[in-house]
């Protein structure tokens, strides 16, 4: 079976699962409608989910993904307390700027997750990604340093190691 078809079948069953979670499984009409919609979803967008043949260490990767979610939630809480402090402070003590960081990640999906995580964590917002050069442009609310190496260490490395384990 080709990679695309395997990906489509996985998407079909996942979307069917979500449909059953949302609707009444004992109602035959809902079940039939769910199957039809899941087929449409799998045909239109199914081939994006699985893109590599590699299936080794699946449990290790799931473990790292869970670790990532926990770390991500902790960073989000820190980010929110930080923003709340900045906003309530009478002088609004900010020091904004756009800096560049480098990343070792190569896959598009991993880069997207990294960029989204950076946006949701303390004082940083991803403005643009350069896929070929593996660079991200980050808007910082509080710039400490203008050197690329320092900023890479401060911003990117928090998530990069775990994401490397999950995606590559």
């Amino acid at each position: 079976m080709s990679l695309k078809n395997r990906s489509r079948i996985t998407v079909f069953f996942l979307s069917l699962l979500v449909w059953f979670a949302l609707t009444d499984i004992t109602n035959l009409q809902e079940v039939i409608l769910g199957i039809i919609i899941a087929i449409f979803v799998a045909l239109i967008a199914g081939h994006f989910l699985i893109t590599t043949e590699k299936r080794k260490h699946i449990f290790k990767r799931i473990g790292y993904a869970l670790l990532y979610i926990i770390k991500f939630l902790w960073e989000i809480i820190k980010a929110n307390v930080h923003v709340a402090y900045l906003v309530v402070h009478p002088k609004v003590p900010i020091n904004p700027g756009i800096v560049k960081i480098k990343t070792k990640l190569t896959k598009e999906s991993a880069m997207t997750i990294l960029a989204n995580s950076i946006t949701l964590t303390p004082g940083t917002l991803t403005v643009d990604i350069n896929l070929e050069k593996q660079e991200l442009y980050i808007h910082c609310i509080d710039v400490h340093s203008k050197k690329i190496e320092d900023n890479t260490k401060d911003i990117g490395n928090r998530f990069e190691k775990i994401l490397m384990e999950v995606f590559e």
Binding site: N80, V83, L120
Partner: peptide, 13 residues
């Protein structure tokens, strides 16, 4: 840009 920072983080959370 700074306003987006507040809008994404606090409002998402």
């Amino acid at each position: 840009y700074n306003r987006l920072q507040a809008a994404t983080k606090s409002v998402t959370f």
